[in-house]
Design a protein around this nucleic acid. Structure first.
Ligand SMILES: [Mn+2]
Ligand SMILES: [Mn+2]
Ligand SMILES: [Mn+2]
Ligand SMILES: [Mn+2]
Lengths: 221, 221
DNA sequence: AGCGCAGTTTAGTCATAGCTAATTCCGATC
DNA sequence: GATCGGAATTAGCTATGACTAAACTGCGCT
């Protein structure tokens, strides 16, 4: 197991997280993809890519993009673990709602020591998923793959439980919560309009139509 | 009530805290005092003093030092409130020990939102003191003065309860805990050696002699 | 009153992390 | 295989916050 450089800056940690997310989505991590994800100009992304490459955290091919090294992946997973454990904690122990936890965890993740991380993990009973249904890397940074089906994959009449909702946008999360689309909730797909049309679902809250695209971002089990 | 500039840097917040502490100790906040307290070179302290003055957070007189403005004091108290609330939370809810809480809170204090601060405050039942016995500024940033007696002020034979111990040094806190000198603990002063000599105290743990200087840093009620 | 020294500030550097404007590269198209 | 356009990089700038070395100030002492 490679030693990972402790004392990464907050910015470096956030870039690593973004690179990990892009790789996870199967997107090539180009300068423009990274810049867009980080809400930063392309030259800023280039500069950080070089810095991360210098630290041995990414492999960089000029004009091609970057890829996490083993060390870089470990650093990214470390931050993701902090983020998701904190979300779980904030939701379970301090009653923050699904739409609130992300922003808080985004800040706290960089200020969490390994000791406190372990304490929180134990306190929560070693949870495996955050409140949005995303898997929490374990203490050895192993992460479940879990690329399952989504609401848009279900046939009409099929029932399932929501397992995962998109985590970044508070407005969207409030909207989904209103519709009864939260992790663990039961859903039934009533109709799937053709030509990429909306998906109509029934939840405890009632019947609602959502776009195919959004349905594709809600995982079920 | 002056508006205080949100979005102060972590460094600025830590300097304001240090300036507040020095003023509280009655020390003139000179460049060298500030540099020493922040473990930074004198030119670095000068530069930050100028930046803070530019933000209207301190009054600066070249070659003389700085003093917090009302706005600056509010910013300092905000950070102190975060710090002490977090210490209280970490001790009460996550079982961190007296010597561990300070370092953790030092990092987390800058990443705590006002909403989460309020949530934690409520969860704890609006505590008035941190685990070291330091007063927590309330939501309006009012802070108790509380300049009481210390162990070195007690006469031989006097009994009291420890109300406050120095909070920064983990080794010292472990040592004091071994001696039974923790907030709330009962103490009796047995002997006070002349010429600034040691103070001998009895606690539940037994009899121990500590320096007059250290005794002077332990408050009693 | 003047000297000198300690303490303070200025000057000049470095690293991080962002920006815009200018330039360069790559690959798709002709 | 040359050309062109979009993506990427370089160049040059800003701000923060640290440093060392050099210059300056003010105050206490003679
Ligand atoms: Mn973050
Ligand atoms: Mn960790
Ligand atoms: Mn701090
Ligand atoms: Mn606050």
């Amino acid at each position: 197991m490679r030693t990972r450089p402790r004392e990464l800056t907050v910015a470096a940690q956030d870039y690593l997280k973004a690179i990990h997310a892009l790789e996870d989505e199967g997107v090539r991590v180009t300068t423009s993809a990274l810049a867009e994800r980080m809400s930063v100009s392309a030259p800023s992304a280039t500069a950080m890519a070089k810095r991360l490459a210098g630290l041995g955290l990414v492999e960089r091919t000029p004009y091609r993009g970057v890829a996490l090294t083993e060390t870089g992946r470990a650093c990214a997973l470390e931050v993701i673990r902090h983020h998701r454990l904190l979300e779980r904690y904030l939701a379970d122990r301090l009653g923050l709602t699904l739409d609130e936890v992300h922003a808080e965890a985004e800040l706290l993740e960089h200020a969490l020591s390994e000791e406190l991380e372990a304490r929180i993990d134990a306190e929560l009973g070693y949870p495996t998923h955050d409140p949005h249904g995303d898997p929490i890397p374990d203490a050895e940074l192993k992460l479940d793959a879990e690329r399952g089906r989504t609401l848009s994959d279900l046939d009409e009449g099929e029932r399932a439980a929501v397992s995962r909702v998109p985590d970044g946008d508070p407005g969207l999360l409030r909207y989904l919560a209103e519709l009864g689309l939260v992790p663990e909730a039961e859903v039934e797909v009533l109709r799937r309009a053709p030509y990429g049309g909306p998906v109509t679902v029934r939840t405890v809250v009632g019947e609602h139509a959502i776009s195919r695209e959004l349905a594709g971002r809600i995982a079920v089990a």
